[in-house]
Simulated scan of single mutants.
Amino acid sequence: MILIHVQYIKPLNEVDQYRKAHILHLEHYYQQNLIHASGPYNNREGGFIISNMSIDEAQSYIDNDPYHFAQVATFKLIDFSPTKSSELFTLLIDKDHFPKEAKALFNSLHGQHAGERLINTLSNISPEFTDLTFNFAFGEILSRPLLPMLLKELLIIAMCTMLGDTQKQLHSHIDAAYNLGATTQMIVEVLLLAIPIIGFPRVANVLLTLKEIIESKHGHSDIAMNHLE
């Protein structure tokens, strides 16, 4: 987990001008289940944020915090791994209460990208949904050994394309396919193969999603590129 120490460097009347914008910024991360607690110190010299963000996510949070933009506060990141905690706190910050093999599989496919953000958001709405995802989808189905994992992800991409209206899931599974070594052209070939069964409109929509993913990672949309790094 990442702890963020916020130190005010300007008078409170200047800090308070940006407080509402700062709270809205925090709320965005609460909605993604990335921040668990936050608030000012009682002496109003700064504040503290408790999160389960990665270092990169926490740095992105700081870079976009209105207090940082306005230069009314400085921020310090603290990478912290508790060695002892209450059961409730452990459940809050640690998802390792899920089956270890299912959690490890999830991390290898979806860790630190759109899949993890999606499951964190859904967990904030319905923890039961997350339980079912790890226990059944990853623990019982995706962990079956007969088919290679990359083939499974390419099949899931094809099935999501067929269903339509699954852009968030497609983003997650395209990211997972890249994690497993897929090239852009492999994913494009799967989509082209699906055209006779699924039709042009749904395939076209997924190609646009693929284009957005490439642009977000590389700043350009050459879908003929061989791979994403």
Rank of each mutant, 00 (worst) to 15 (best):
residue 14 E to A: 00
residue 15 V to H: 05
residue 15 V to E: 05
residue 16 D to R: 14
residue 18 Y to T: 08
residue 19 R to V: 03
residue 20 K to P: 07
residue 21 A to P: 07
residue 22 H to E: 00
residue 23 I to H: 05
residue 26 L to C: 05
residue 26 L to T: 03
residue 27 E to A: 10
residue 30 Y to N: 01
residue 30 Y to D: 11
residue 31 Q to L: 11
residue 31 Q to W: 08
residue 32 Q to L: 13
residue 33 N to S: 06
residue 33 N to R: 08
residue 36 H to T: 14
residue 37 A to F: 15
residue 40 P to T: 07
residue 41 Y to I: 09
residue 41 Y to K: 07
residue 42 N to G: 14
residue 42 N to M: 10
residue 43 N to V: 09
residue 45 E to R: 13
residue 45 E to L: 09
residue 46 G to E: 04
residue 46 G to K: 02
residue 47 G to L: 00
residue 47 G to W: 03
residue 48 F to K: 00
residue 48 F to S: 06
residue 50 I to W: 12
residue 51 S to C: 02
residue 51 S to F: 04
residue 52 N to H: 12
residue 52 N to L: 12
residue 53 M to L: 10
residue 59 Q to M: 03
residue 59 Q to L: 01
residue 60 S to D: 13
residue 63 D to N: 03
residue 63 D to W: 03
residue 65 D to V: 03
residue 66 P to D: 04
residue 67 Y to R: 04
residue 67 Y to G: 04
residue 67 Y to K: 00
residue 68 H to F: 10
residue 68 H to I: 02
residue 70 A to F: 02
residue 72 V to H: 00
residue 73 A to Y: 00
residue 75 F to D: 06
residue 75 F to Q: 10
residue 76 K to M: 12
residue 77 L to E: 01
residue 78 I to A: 15
residue 80 F to P: 07
residue 81 S to N: 13
residue 81 S to R: 15
residue 82 P to T: 03
residue 83 T to K: 07
residue 83 T to H: 08
residue 86 S to Y: 08
residue 87 E to I: 07
residue 88 L to P: 10
residue 89 F to N: 12
residue 90 T to I: 11
residue 91 L to W: 04
residue 91 L to S: 11
residue 93 I to D: 00
residue 94 D to C: 10
residue 94 D to M: 11
residue 95 K to R: 15
